[in-house]
Amino acid sequence: MRALTVVPLKSGSAEVRDVPEPDAGDDRLLVEGLALGVCGTDREIAAGEYGWAPPGAERLVLGHESLGRVRSAPGGSGFAAGDLVVGIVRRPDPRPCAACAHGEFDMCRNGEYTERGIKQLDGYGCEIWSVEPDFAIKLGAGLAETGVLLEPTSVVAKAWDQVERVGARSYFAPERVLVTGAGPIGLLAALLGVQRGLDVHVLDRTGKGPKARAAEALGATYHSAGVAETAERLRPDVIIEATGAPSVVFDAIAGTGAYGVTCLTGVSPAGRTISVDLGQANRSMVLENDVVVGSVNANPRHYAAAAQALAAADPAWLASLITRRVPLERFAEALESRPDDIKVVLTLGS
């Protein structure tokens, strides 16, 4: 079968290769790969910035945003041939740490976790893959075209979960949220905000285009002015930061109203410095009881919440987020980042 593979830490090594089909055995689902979402993580691995092959292997099968259809399933697993499924990315460390032992492996404390398509486990970028039933999420037939959005939706489902848990430390009745960044994470975060009945605002540096149209079609207000200026005017109760741009991150941290929560989901590049007044930032956070929380990855609870959110969303709106579909053999095009991209998807069928 065909698979998209890379040699981790070697730029330009990505290629489609023939690899052996997986043996599902008696305890795993055998899945026909339908689609694979491409994100910044995949582009960084393909560029040789990081990534880990499975032990003893030179190459890693890329891809963690999956969608497939079950070919066969173990009896009693809750799955059957024909089911649409998505595979969970992370696996708990084998020791395990306390968080992993309690099923919160997205919060692993010792870094010994593994991840499909990223760290020591082959990913979902192949025509056939297998997965443990406990690490598969079933989707309804209505998500056959857009279910590949489940993994990024799980990331923002966790972000909202973190915001609400932090807010629940005292009285918390948020009304307004500002999402910085209108890529897939930002727009899906906005979707979950709209579904919560909040006044949602989305900010991105681009003016008119697919991102603005998607935000407005969702019922959110779209902004392209600076973060500090927009936040000062809105005084949002919650900011979900989805760019990772250092200047945007700092302005987001400083931008909530009193007793606000800022959730950082974008990963900033190292080595970039900006000049900030940490004293003023500390003063504001303390005097206003503000909270900043980082959030990454997701566990099965968040995948389940994400599946519910996608099932409740407008199918046409979800479809509008997928701005390019590229066949597997033209993977290099999918790894290119283009200005009007929201989500790029590789199709895996022959």
Rank of each mutant, 00 (worst) to 15 (best):
I253E: 01
V267Q: 10
F135G: 13
A53S: 08
N299M: 01
P55Q: 05
G63Q: 03
A228Q: 12
G266W: 05
V155S: 14
G25F: 09
V345Y: 10
A334E: 01
C39S: 14
S224Y: 14
A220T: 04
R325I: 06
A270V: 03
G197H: 08
A168V: 05
G183C: 07
V148Y: 11
I253N: 03
R283Y: 12
I253Q: 11
S275T: 15
C108K: 05
S247C: 07
V6C: 10
S170E: 12
M107A: 15
S77W: 11
E115C: 09
L62M: 15
K138H: 03
G75Y: 09
E232N: 14
E151C: 12
L264F: 07
P20V: 10
R205G: 14
A217K: 14
G125Y: 03
R59V: 07
A46D: 12
F172I: 07
H102Q: 14
A57S: 14
A313W: 04
D23Q: 09
D277Y: 04
S77M: 10
V166E: 06
N282P: 06
P22V: 04
V202I: 08
L139A: 14
L278N: 03
M107K: 13
V267I: 14
N110M: 03
E175P: 00
A307D: 06
A332N: 11
G125T: 06
G140D: 15
D93K: 08
W160C: 08
I137S: 11
D23G: 04
L318A: 04
V293I: 13
L84E: 02
L9K: 14
A24V: 03
Y50H: 15
I240Y: 08
G123I: 10
D204E: 12
G125Q: 04
V177A: 07
L348C: 13
G37T: 05
N289M: 12
L60Y: 05
A80L: 06
E104A: 15
A80H: 01
K211S: 07
G78M: 06
